[in-house]
Computed example of a mutant assay.
Amino acid sequence: MAFVLFFFAAWFITTTFLIMPKKISIIENTFVLMVILIININWGWIIYEGMERIELTEESMNYTAFLLLRSVIIPLILVTQLNLVHKSNTIFVVLVSLIILLFFSSLTSILNIADYVKWNLGFDAIYYLLLHVIAYYSLLFIRKIAYKEVTYT
């Protein structure tokens, strides 16, 4: 059941991202996606394996659902959110994406994908807010670097 829900969510978010008109270039989208993906995977490794704050399931389909969340859903929600920020109210879009991310985190607990040992949704909320900030500043960084090209020869 968990795999089906997370697979559908990954498919839906990917399709939404591909169909929506983008205000950010493909290079900027790719850079932010890669930065968030690297941070998310490393953070997960530290919290799940290193510090043992959250225990993951041993079942293969549920673990695949976790991998979809970590590697597809979270980064694409953040990149989609960055593309939507330019169109509408920034605070509203960030809050909606934060609520969606927390919903998926609570689903992992409900569907027995992850067991929160020394962790709670408050820590997840702080982590997701930091991911939003990192995504925004990585976008600003790539824009700053991209416009700093060599003009003197």
Rank of each mutant, 00 (worst) to 15 (best):
D115V: 13
T90F: 07
K144Y: 12
T151L: 03
V133C: 14
P75S: 02
I73F: 04
D115I: 09
I13T: 08
F8V: 09
R70S: 11
I46C: 01
I27P: 01
L37W: 13
I126T: 12
L18E: 11
E52R: 13
V150Q: 10
V4P: 05
G122Y: 15
N40T: 15
F3L: 15
L139F: 04
E49A: 14
Y136L: 14
I41N: 06
I24H: 03
I27N: 03
M61S: 15
N112K: 09
N89L: 03
I73S: 07
F66L: 01
I46R: 11
D124A: 08
I13N: 04
G44D: 08
D115Q: 13
I27D: 01
Y137A: 10
S106G: 00
S138R: 03
K87A: 11
I110R: 10
E149S: 14
T57W: 01
F6C: 01
Y128A: 12
S25P: 03
F8P: 07
K87L: 15
A125S: 10
G44K: 00
L78E: 05
L33W: 10
K118V: 12
L76H: 11
T153V: 14
K148V: 13
Y116H: 04
I46T: 00
A9W: 01
N83T: 01
S106Q: 09
L107H: 04
N120K: 11
F8L: 13
N112P: 06
N42V: 10
I39L: 06
A9Y: 02
K144T: 04
Y63W: 11
T153A: 15
I41D: 07
